[in-house]
Amino acid sequence: MKDQHHRPPHPYKVLAISFFLTGMGQVVNGHPSRGLMMAFTALSLAWVSYNLTGVDHSFVGRFAGGFMIHAIALMDAYRHARIRWEQWKHAQGRAAGAV
Protein backbone atom coordinates (compact mmCIF):
# COMPACT_ATOMS: atom_id res chain seq x y z
CA MET A 1 0.00 0.00 0.00
CA LYS A 2 1.58 3.28 -1.07
CA ASP A 3 -0.12 5.54 1.55
CA GLN A 4 1.17 3.75 4.66
CA HIS A 5 3.35 6.66 5.73
CA HIS A 6 1.15 9.50 4.54
CA ARG A 7 -1.58 10.38 7.04
CA PRO A 8 -4.91 11.09 5.31
CA PRO A 9 -7.07 14.00 6.51
CA HIS A 10 -9.39 13.21 9.40
CA PRO A 11 -12.90 12.26 8.20
CA TYR A 12 -14.53 14.98 10.33
CA LYS A 13 -12.31 17.60 8.73
CA VAL A 14 -13.33 16.36 5.28
CA LEU A 15 -16.98 16.39 6.40
CA ALA A 16 -16.72 20.01 7.56
CA ILE A 17 -15.04 21.13 4.34
CA SER A 18 -17.61 19.28 2.25
CA PHE A 19 -20.47 20.80 4.24
CA PHE A 20 -19.46 24.33 3.28
CA LEU A 21 -18.12 23.72 -0.24
CA THR A 22 -19.77 21.14 -2.46
CA GLY A 23 -17.16 18.91 -4.07
CA MET A 24 -14.19 20.10 -2.01
CA GLY A 25 -14.36 17.04 0.23
CA GLN A 26 -13.64 14.92 -2.82
CA VAL A 27 -10.72 17.20 -3.73
CA VAL A 28 -9.28 16.84 -0.21
CA ASN A 29 -9.67 13.06 -0.56
CA GLY A 30 -7.57 13.15 -3.72
CA HIS A 31 -10.39 12.91 -6.29
CA PRO A 32 -10.49 16.37 -7.91
CA SER A 33 -12.39 15.27 -11.02
CA ARG A 34 -15.06 13.66 -8.85
CA GLY A 35 -15.34 16.89 -6.82
CA LEU A 36 -15.65 18.99 -9.94
CA MET A 37 -18.36 16.67 -11.23
CA MET A 38 -20.27 16.97 -7.93
CA ALA A 39 -20.01 20.76 -7.90
CA PHE A 40 -21.18 21.21 -11.50
CA THR A 41 -23.96 18.66 -11.06
CA ALA A 42 -25.18 20.49 -7.96
CA LEU A 43 -25.13 23.82 -9.77
CA SER A 44 -26.86 22.36 -12.82
CA LEU A 45 -29.64 20.68 -10.85
CA ALA A 46 -30.10 23.76 -8.69
CA TRP A 47 -30.58 25.79 -11.87
CA VAL A 48 -33.01 23.23 -13.29
CA SER A 49 -35.09 23.00 -10.13
CA TYR A 50 -35.11 26.80 -9.78
CA ASN A 51 -36.48 27.15 -13.30
CA LEU A 52 -39.06 24.41 -12.85
CA THR A 53 -40.57 25.84 -9.67
CA GLY A 54 -42.61 28.94 -9.06
CA VAL A 55 -42.29 31.85 -6.70
CA ASP A 56 -44.68 30.18 -4.27
CA HIS A 57 -42.01 27.59 -3.33
CA SER A 58 -39.55 28.01 -0.47
CA PHE A 59 -35.84 28.69 -0.94
CA VAL A 60 -35.01 25.04 -0.31
CA GLY A 61 -37.75 23.96 -2.69
CA ARG A 62 -36.49 26.25 -5.42
CA PHE A 63 -32.97 24.81 -5.23
CA ALA A 64 -33.89 21.23 -4.22
CA GLY A 65 -31.84 19.59 -6.96
CA GLY A 66 -28.67 21.32 -5.85
CA PHE A 67 -29.29 20.53 -2.18
CA MET A 68 -29.86 16.88 -3.06
CA ILE A 69 -26.50 16.61 -4.86
CA HIS A 70 -24.82 18.56 -2.05
CA ALA A 71 -26.09 15.96 0.44
CA ILE A 72 -24.89 13.10 -1.77
CA ALA A 73 -21.47 14.74 -2.17
CA LEU A 74 -21.27 15.24 1.60
CA MET A 75 -21.95 11.56 2.31
CA ASP A 76 -19.61 10.44 -0.47
CA ALA A 77 -16.70 12.56 0.77
CA TYR A 78 -17.14 11.41 4.37
CA ARG A 79 -17.42 7.75 3.34
CA HIS A 80 -14.22 7.85 1.29
CA ALA A 81 -12.39 9.77 4.02
CA ARG A 82 -13.51 7.29 6.69
CA ILE A 83 -12.37 4.32 4.56
CA ARG A 84 -8.97 5.93 3.91
CA TRP A 85 -8.61 6.81 7.60
CA GLU A 86 -9.41 3.26 8.78
CA GLN A 87 -7.07 1.72 6.19
CA TRP A 88 -4.30 4.05 7.33
CA LYS A 89 -4.91 3.23 11.01
CA HIS A 90 -4.90 -0.49 10.22
CA ALA A 91 -1.66 -0.16 8.29
CA GLN A 92 -0.10 1.78 11.18
CA GLY A 93 -1.13 -0.92 13.62
CA ARG A 94 0.35 -3.63 11.41
CA ALA A 95 3.57 -1.63 10.99
CA ALA A 96 3.86 -1.14 14.76
CA GLY A 97 3.28 -4.86 15.34
CA ALA A 98 5.93 -5.81 12.80
CA VAL A 99 8.63 -3.69 14.49
Rank of each mutant, 00 (worst) to 15 (best):
K89C: 14
G93D: 08
H10G: 03
R62C: 00
G30H: 13
H90N: 14
A81C: 08
G54C: 07
Q26N: 12
M37C: 12
S49H: 01
M38G: 02
A91K: 06
H70D: 00
A16D: 04
G23M: 06
Q92T: 01
K89S: 05
H6S: 04
T53M: 13
L43D: 01
G61M: 06
L74N: 07
H57M: 15
M24N: 05
M68F: 10
A73N: 09
Y78F: 15
K89R: 15
M75E: 08
M75Q: 11
A91W: 11
A73M: 10
M68N: 06
R79V: 00
S58V: 01
G23D: 07
M24Q: 06
H80G: 00
A96T: 08
N29G: 06
V99D: 00
D56M: 07
M38T: 02
Y12T: 06
F63Y: 14
R82C: 02
R82I: 11
V28F: 14
H5Y: 09
L74H: 10
S33E: 05
R34E: 13
G54W: 10
Q26G: 02
A91D: 10
F63Q: 01
H5V: 08
D56V: 02
H10N: 13
P8N: 07
Q4A: 04
G30M: 04
I83T: 04
L36G: 10
W88L: 03
D3T: 05
L15P: 03
G61D: 02
W47E: 06
M68Y: 10
P9R: 11
H6G: 05
S44R: 05
F67W: 08
H31L: 14
M37H: 13
A81N: 12
M38I: 03
Q92C: 09
I69N: 01
L74E: 13
V48G: 03
I17R: 09
N51I: 07
A16V: 04
S33G: 07
S44H: 11
G30I: 00
D76T: 08
G23F: 09
F59R: 04
A39T: 00
A71Q: 08
A77C: 13
G65W: 10
W47M: 12
R79T: 02
I17L: 15
M37S: 14
R62D: 04
A16E: 13
S44C: 07
A39E: 06
V27Y: 11
L36M: 13
Y12H: 14
G65I: 03
T41G: 05
G93K: 15
F59W: 08
F67P: 00
P11M: 02
G25A: 10
M68G: 03
H5S: 07
S44W: 13
P11L: 05
M37E: 04
L15H: 03
V48A: 04
L43N: 03
L52P: 00
V28Q: 10
